[in-house]
Amino acid sequence: MLRKPVARIDLTALQHNLRQVRQLAPESKVLAVLKANAYGHGMLKVAEQLQQADAFGVARLDEALSLRAGGVVKPIVLLEGFFDADELPQIVASNLQVVVHQQEQVDAIVAAELDAPIRVWLKMDTGMHRLGLMPEHYQTAYQRLSQSPNCLPAFRLMSHFACADDRQSPDTQAQLQCFYHHSQGLAGEVSLANSAGVLAWPESHQQWVRPGIMLYGVSPMLQQQAMPIELKPVMTLCSRVIAVRSIAAGETVGYGSAWQTPQATRLAVVAIGYGDGYPRNVPNGTPVLVHGKRYPIVGRVSMDMLTIDIGTDAVQSGDEVVLWGQGLPVAEIAAKVGTIPYELLCNITPRVDFHYNSSAL
């Protein structure tokens, strides 16, 4: 029996979530986002299970090359584009597609001597103010790239939403209006909707949607806003109890004596800590599951262990403990820490074993 953390990856849930995307945007192609090691789930394994997607999106060239080295032949889009003109020959050789989001990239493509043209996704900054050509420069960049033999015809036109997770925000509608106004008359398939756009803004679906976090079973929406479909968690992070001990009333637990028991109780020590990617700063009372029942974390999370208060319950050494996933949403743990689920999923370290299965948990 393994006494170390395991991330169980439910591939059936992953495929279910992709079907939910198709249900919401039946007329759209799907660019499945696999950046950051597929949000911590294992990029190559996830890619192998998402063959029904139309293309994959990654952030950087090394991620794309890892997929190609793993045998992935499906179209791959570099969502951050390229950082240096020297990367363009490799992009051509690996048959990659690029997001172009600044004038320097436009200049580099036009000036390059390439063996074959590349597919360009031309990005407009409609209000996110992170990446993208300013709206007033968009048409000029489009026309200049259209005249270059280094670009395949029929560009893809795109932008990115800043507040799509909030249905009450006026920003998404303003971004849509900005995009359509400044791309008027330009030919090309359109991609606007991230996960929140897929869920909450059907008018943004267009020819391509770009689901990321929702593929992994996590809602991108603000907590109080319900979803129109059911997503299933793909990752269940679990470990095991390695010790059980009794302590008297008034005793303290862990570094800094950060928790003191008000009464005699029993503690279970769980083999997981911040060295495995579980957040160190979870407060006392953050739940875990043992045999489907919630128990509170007490004391500080240490590098390799954390402690839970089990009272008089029959928890014993070797029992499995679920930190998040099936039965305990990662979003709930993230809220306790004051962060977002994305960060927790991406922070799992190589000390954790990954077990992939194709049956529902």
Score class of each variant (00 low, 15 high):
residue 7 A to L: 15
residue 7 A to G: 09
residue 7 A to S: 14
residue 11 L to K: 13
residue 17 N to H: 08
residue 24 L to H: 14
residue 24 L to G: 13
residue 24 L to Y: 14
residue 28 S to R: 01
residue 31 L to D: 00
residue 31 L to H: 02
residue 35 K to A: 04
residue 38 A to D: 05
residue 39 Y to C: 05
residue 40 G to F: 11
residue 41 H to W: 09
residue 41 H to V: 10
residue 43 M to P: 01
residue 44 L to A: 01
residue 46 V to S: 14
residue 46 V to W: 02
residue 47 A to L: 07
residue 48 E to L: 12
residue 52 Q to C: 03
residue 54 D to F: 01
residue 74 K to G: 02
residue 79 L to R: 07
residue 81 G to D: 07
residue 85 A to H: 03
residue 91 I to V: 14
residue 97 Q to D: 13
residue 99 V to C: 10
residue 104 E to M: 13
residue 105 Q to C: 12
residue 105 Q to I: 13
residue 113 E to D: 11
residue 113 E to Q: 13
residue 115 D to P: 03
residue 118 I to C: 05
residue 119 R to V: 03
residue 127 G to Q: 07
residue 134 M to C: 04
residue 135 P to H: 03
residue 137 H to T: 06
residue 160 H to C: 12
residue 163 C to I: 03
residue 166 D to K: 09
residue 173 Q to N: 05
residue 183 S to D: 06
residue 185 G to P: 02
residue 186 L to W: 10
residue 188 G to D: 01
residue 190 V to Y: 05
residue 206 Q to T: 04
residue 207 Q to F: 01
residue 212 G to N: 04
residue 213 I to D: 00
residue 214 M to N: 06
residue 221 M to E: 01
residue 224 Q to N: 14
residue 226 A to N: 06
residue 232 K to A: 12
residue 234 V to Q: 04
residue 239 S to T: 15
residue 243 A to K: 14
residue 246 S to Y: 08
residue 253 V to Y: 02
residue 254 G to P: 01
residue 256 G to Q: 09
residue 271 A to M: 11
residue 273 G to I: 06
residue 274 Y to S: 06
residue 282 V to W: 02
residue 288 V to F: 01
residue 289 L to F: 12
residue 298 V to W: 00
residue 307 T to N: 08
residue 315 V to P: 06
residue 316 Q to F: 04
residue 317 S to R: 15
residue 318 G to C: 11
residue 318 G to F: 01
residue 326 Q to G: 03
residue 329 P to Y: 11
residue 333 I to S: 00
residue 341 P to W: 00
residue 348 I to E: 07
residue 357 N to A: 13
residue 358 S to G: 08
